[in-house]
Amino acid sequence: MTALVADKLIVKRGNATLLNGLSLSLGPTGSVAVIGPNGAGKSTLLKVLAGIEAPTSGRVLLGDRDLAGLSHATRAHALGFVPQQFDPHWDLSVDELIRMGAERGERVLQGAVDRVIADFELEALGRRRWSTLSGGERARVLLATVLVVDPPVLLADEPAASLDIRHRLGVIQSLAARGRERLSMVVVHDLDLAFSYFDRIVLVDRGSVVADAPARTLLEDPCLDAAFGVRFDRLQTDDGWLLRARL
């Protein structure tokens, strides 16, 4: 059974081809890291999978239904999307934000709001406004806002990229852990984090999937070096591998 399928996606913007006939099939559970060099098409892929951008051709299937044919509300309920950058225009409070996240479901479940506030340890932040939050707090609030309706599919675009290492670890771990029960697909820049915490790695380059394999298998594949244009030293540690890049 598959949860999300990308079928020969092509995305063109002006003269640029951002996705070039990309196909991908994702199960109902699992933690998937999307990696690739800058401009590979990772963010575009995530936005098309989330239904935020329409592909020039090709289609996305959610379950067995075409994403383009679903209502906005159904799609919003099924697909959680965490953007790379989130700057609300008005200075909302944490409570108001989470409430808005909850309102995209069929109805607001107070239990779900309370649960997500407990999960992300936001009890003390309720009345604080967005502008007063630290980077780590913002990341937690954003995740809570997206996950409050418990969407079956989560698509996250490097939500932890600008955080310090402790907060980045926390966010990446909780996103990967979500893959045990749901589908969690995350664009990850830090390759060591991707290989350490995710079951499956999708390597995207020039708008196509170059490799799609379990982390352990892909780690040894030379296509990794080719895609990033570097030579990786693969260093074994007690509980995994470290990648060191050389030009």
């Binding site: 936005k47 989330a50 239904g51 935020i52 906005h72 509300a73 799609r75 919003a76 309920h77 697909l79 959680g80 999307f81 953007p83 989130f86 700057d87 609300p88 225009h89 008005w90 909302l92 808005m100 996240g101 995209r104 997206v146």
Partner: peptide, 17 residues
Amino acid sequence: LDMLGLGETMATSFGLN
């Protein structure tokens, strides 16, 4: 209007056309 205030990407992902 509240949703739009989250930015057009987030508003779309929250189900706003």
